[in-house]
Write a protein that binds this DNA or RNA. Structure first.
Lengths: 152, 152
DNA sequence: CGTATTATAGATATAAAGGTCCGAATATCC
DNA sequence: GGATATTCGGACCTTTATATCTATAATACG
């Protein structure tokens, strides 16, 4: 459905949203989200480039969200690493079709639009707020002192 | 959104649905649908294995649909070559989560379900019936005698 | 200033998807 | 039966996605 890279990006964003107040290093995010650290580093770079997170080098450095979780939706995260492609012209390259899609590709693009809208409508804050039996990314609910990484 | 392979499979199925009555060779389908013939051959093999189309070797052979276009939906075609994967267990492998997904993965699976349903609801016949300005796969509308390949 | 810490950049390796090729099997036509 | 057309099965190649590794630049702290 979404690429591995997009999945990793979402995990990182959700982690940062759940742990605000200070910067978090690649290693720290990687450990909790169970993502290969070296690869996560690349993904985070893309997120910085897209302006979704900010980075800080050196001691005490790491990554923080650029904006509040209720102002950030899933679609923005996906588009930063692995853009959802709408079908705008005939994939067969037929001249007569031009920008008017045939029924098949219209149907496929409708589905794409559906997903696009669905992701645009759900913010990261929605995910954090959503009541479920298990906390995102964590084995058990975070501790009161806000340091969930003490677990495991 | 969907893989290249899935796109090719759909083109082939739509082509066969639009040209019933006789078998069509790999080359014939490839030419019209603008798909590399050698690769299409592989895709068609998958469709035969899944039971969506039937093959016939030798002179006059080729491929035909196994069932009527109104009994065949897009989801079946996709699942034959590139199955849509629902998220059933926690991708992080967290024990405490088990089969109950956390909010993030619940959200992603909801989107997957949305697409799955959307594709299950549209049959190949729907696509053929849908009025649009351009005929699926073809530069111009098929001729009266039912031989659209005369074009180009 | 020197050292530890951390992101950044780029080269390289591995796996999966996409694509090609060819010989064998099967069917039709004469 | 022989010639021809066509799928089938598998080996092979190419490109892209995923992942790792190493060196470098920026920052903080003493």
């Amino acid at each position: 459905m979404i690429s591995q890279t997009a999945e990793y990006a979402l995990r990182a964003i959700v982690f940062l949203a759940m742990n605000p107040g200070r910067a978090h290093t690649t290693q720290e995010i990687a450990d909790t989200t169970k993502v290969p650290a070296a690869y996560l580093s690349k993904v985070l770079k893309s997120l910085v480039k897209a302006g979704l997170i900010q980075s800080q080098r050196g001691l005490g450095g790491g990554f923080v969200l650029s904006k509040s979780p209720d102002q950030l939706n899933i679609l923005e995260v996906l588009n930063a690493v692995d853009p959802i492609q709408r079908i705008r012209t005939c994939p067969l390259g037929l001249q007569g079709h031009g920008t008017v899609l045939c029924a098949l590709h219209k149907r496929l693009d409708d589905a794409t639009a559906l997903i696009e809208q669905s992701f645009a409508d759900s913010t990261i804050a929605d995910i954090l707020a959503r009541p479920t039996q298990s906390t995102p990314l964590y084995e058990r609910p975070p501790t009161k002192d806000g340091n969930p990484c003490a677990y495991e």
